[in-house]
Design a binder for these strands. Structure first.
Lengths: 169, 169
DNA sequence: AAAAACTTTCATAAAATTTTGAAAGTTCAA
DNA sequence: TTGAACTTTCAAAATTTTATGAAAGTTTTT
């Protein structure tokens, strides 16, 4: 396989992976492009490489910057903005975990907390009890996941590796 | 909050959570319904509860059965099929992990393996070297994630809890 | 202060995904 | 072996998501 093909294939696959995990396909493709680009890229270069519009490129690059997966940088003597991808995959993983924890897991836990306060009436005592029990159960698991992800999200890679090695023993 | 409202809210939130993680919203809603239903449900009861068509209900219930999140059962004297949800959230987590590992992570690792064989030409030696290095790096992380998920996917919940407690010490 | 260089926004268009429901398929009882 | 009861399929319709690109906004230079 040639380098150009390989790059194209990587971008497409990474985009596909992101897409099945609920991340905008183009955003994941842009991320892939940054992962394998040594140099800084401008919005125009991203537009060109992926054949996408300025608006699309701009919006998705901005989200990547928000997630901490891409950094904004300036070149001296140049007016426009350039971007550089975070290459450390452990950091990438941590930042994706944090973004999604904040956006999705935490709100779900909040809802589960509310749902524990459902009212009982004379007629539905048993039903309410069963519902509360299951919600509590789900909430506890969600909180375990949340804590686990928080730990991973702020741990050194070495610590994780060491812990994992012990784990599988 | 009343029980009916609470159930509705749970179904909507669980559907939303699934949806942002790339799981069909209706499938996640059906799953939510099963999580909080004590009794067996028929396809028609699911259709009724969520106001969805027969085809939609059928397809999504079948996928849930494939994933091991819902079981098919029969009532004696009844011709039609009934379904029961897996209530053990640890098992649910494990089965979701396994399904997605198989469908998405494993294929990505396969692609990364292929990409390591990109050819070098006289002109692009350095570039190819950099590309291979980064792909190798990504692949190693993907494999670490894969192994971690495999471990979690087949571990007892108690083992995980114990390990996690040690982890956060 | 005007214009040039660049970035952001957002209404509309395009594309992708999901849903519907009727027809086809299957199973089983009579 | 017929037909009733039920399940599955899938083309077309509906909905949701994503992308476009021109206009508006911002910053810098002249």
């Amino acid at each position: 396989m040639k380098l150009t093909e390989a790059k194209e294939k990587f971008i497409q696959s990474w985009g596909g992976l992101g897409s099945t995990w609920g991340i905008n396909r183009t955003m994941a493709q842009i991320h892939a492009l940054f992962l394998i680009s040594e140099d800084l890229l401008s919005t125009e270069e991203v537009m060109e490489a992926l054949k996408i519009s300025r608006g699309n490129a701009n919006m998705n690059i901005r989200t990547l910057v928000d997630w901490g997966l891409v950094y904004k940088e300036y070149k001296s003597g140049e007016r426009k903005e350039f971007f550089r991808g975070e290459k450390d995959i452990w950091k990438v993983t941590q930042r994706v975990i944090k973004a999604r924890q904040r956006q999705e897991l935490d709100p779900m836990i909040e809802v589960l907390t509310q749902l524990q306060h459902v009212e009982e009436t004379a007629k539905n005592k048993t039903e309410v009890a069963a519902f509360k029990k299951q919600i509590k159960n789900i909430k506890e698991h969600a909180e375990l996941a949340d804590k686990t992800l928080t730990k991973i999200g702020s741990a050194e890679q070495n610590w994780f590796l060491k812990t994992f090695m012990k784990m599988i023993k």
